[in-house]
Design a protein around this nucleic acid. Structure first.
Length: 473
RNA sequence: GUCCCCAUCGUCUAGCGGUUAGGACACUGCCCUUUCACGGCGGUAACCGGGGUUCAAGUCCCCGUGGGGACACCA
């Protein structure tokens, strides 16, 4: 069998975390099997679908580097094909026109709920219809319903759940075409999955209930359904389905907050899937190791903490230039000019283990590129003491004498000041750090000085001396 | 309400009849240390309940309970 998977989002908003994960699973499965993965835009709901959402989905897929094979398919461009199938179903008596008003349907549903019944269509038009109303000149509004089998059961051989059985008596005659003639979801998916040769449908388990209906339509068409793999939902901290209420759900929001796409992918792949105790996966490992058998059956809760840990992990371990590339967007966003100062990769190397996000990384690295307007209040309060001017002056003089502005020589100069003043590094280092960076946290002093550079460093020490003298005058 | 699905530390999970129930995040103790971090070594913490099946059940079956999902002229 030729394997082919798809991701079929409806463009009614951005690409969210849950969608990204099913896209990832589908993508991984296709890549592992060395087969095709395609993207299909399910935009048949013209009320809610927008071009902005379509673009947002592309942007998200692109950022995560989930590449698809073939051009994206838009369902709105396939209306003729759906109409053809609907007509076929009608001709073969497998579908029928229903003239029930919305009002009647609403009342019916209400009544059934009151009677503690599962709301469903009562098949009023199932038999009365057919021929007399088949004349399209009839002005009366109608929808087209699928004639669902009344007896028997539908068995779904789900690749992650095992066998799921649903009685046809639980299903009703679903609408496959609206009164304006446009096709509905359950019809379009199956036509597309069939036409496109999708072999494995990997989707959220909120679709489990739709699956038997879809299988019935496919069987009415004389076709063999694809294989199904329903992956569990992602829940928020309160155990409810993940939504806006739980904070960031849009994939691009994670870019904005400073996450690396690989960190998000790694987090997502481990949510509902596992390979023994392994937590960290490269892209290639994900592809090689992924399997539907490894997918969990139970829903899982999204943990921002673990995502953050993974992000930090990748910040510490990914190649410097890869991080530098991801960092560009944030450098622009935070309006930092890095043209005057040390090489970005050097700064990343020095700073990477004290940042959890790219936002932090950029924000904490400003002083390498530009002078700061004032000293951090708490840092100055804690480390600038009455003895500070003398210490800084000694450091300034010693550093000014350094011939090669290198880590080893800078370190030696600082140690020398400690020795001549008979002070521990703990007394000398902190004020120097505040003087050079304006804050109480930075890489080790020699590295920091080296990167900030001779001119800037000496000037900042002088500024700090003046600040202290004014303060203690 | 009806139907479908699910159930191991707070969270993500390993486990696929016999384990001192393992790992990771978070939390926490100690060490390292010029700051902040990183790192290293420890610690607290789980099989939802009740019945079976079996020599033996976290693992299999049933019933409860709890949670999630579906029940649209949305996808």
């Amino acid at each position: 069998m030729t394997i082919k998977t798809r991701f079929a989002p409806s463009p009614t908003g951005y690409l969210h975390i849950g969608g990204a994960r099913t896209a990832l699973f589908s993508w991984l499965y296709a890549r592992k099997m060395q087969s095709k993965f395609i993207l299909r835009i399910e935009d048949t709901d013209r009320e809610r679908s927008t071009q902005a959402s379509v673009d947002a989905i592309f942007e998200g897929m692109d950022w995560l580097q989930l590449n698809y094979d073939e051009k994206p398919v838009y369902q709105t461009q396939r209306f003729d094909r759906y109409a053809e199938i609907i007509q076929q179903l009608l001709d073969e008596g497998k579908a029928y026109r229903c003239y029930c008003s919305k009002q009647r349907l609403d009342d019916l549903r209400e009544q059934q709920m009151r009677d503690k019944q599962k709301p469903r269509y009562d098949q009023k038009c199932r038999s009365s219809d057919t021929h007399q109303h088949n004349d399209d000149s009839n002005k009366q509004d109608y929808v087209i319903r699928f004639r669902n089998p009344k007896e028997g059961v539908v068995e779904i051989d789900d690749l992650v759940r095992g066998t799921i059985t649903i009685a046809n008596s639980e299903l009703d005659d679903l609408i496959i075409a609206r009164s304006d003639g446009t096709p509905t979801y359950n019809l379009t998916v199956i036509v597309d999955d069939l036409d496109m040769g999708i072999s494995h449908v990997i989707r959220g388990d909120d679709h489990i209930n739709n699956t038997p209906r879809q299988i019935n339509i496919m069987q009415a068409l004389g076709k063999t359904p694809p294989k199904y793999a329903h992956v569990p939902m992602i829940l928020g901290a309160d155990g409810k389905r993940l939504s806006k209420r739980h904070g960031a759900v849009g994939v691009m929001q994670y870019r904005d907050e400073g996450y690396l796409p690989h960190a998000l992918l790694n987090y997502l792949v481990r949510l509902g899937w596992s390979h023994g105790d392994q937590e960290v996966f490269s892209r290639q490992e994900m592809i090689d190791l992924f399997s539907l058998e490894g997918v969990n059956k139970s829903p899982s809760t999204f943990s921002p903490d673990k995502l953050l840990w993974l992000n930090q992990h990748y910040l510490k371990t990914l190649p410097l230039d890869e991080i530098a590339a991801e960092m560009q967007w944030h450098i622009k966003a935070q309006q930092l000019d890095i043209s005057q100062g040390p090489a970005l990769t050097e700064v990343i190397k020095a700073q990477r283990e004290r940042a959890k996000t790219l936002v932090d990384l950029v924000a904490n690295s400003r002083y390498f590129y530009e002078d700061f307007a004032e000293f951090n209040f708490n840092a100055a309060k804690k480390h600038f003491k009455t003895a500070t001017p003398a210490i800084l002056q000694a450091l300034h003089d010693a550093l000014a004498d350094v011939s090669e502005w290198q880590e080893s020589t800078l370190h030696a100069a600082i140690m020398q000041v400690c020795e001549t003043m008979d002070l521990k590094l703990g007394k000398v280092g902190p004020p120097l750090r505040v003087a050079i960076t304006g804050t109480a946290m930075s890489p080790s002093l020699d590295v920091t000085l080296k990167l900030v550079g001779r001119e800037r460093s000496l000037a900042r020490i002088l500024t700090a001396i003046a600040f202290n003298q004014a303060k203690y005058a």
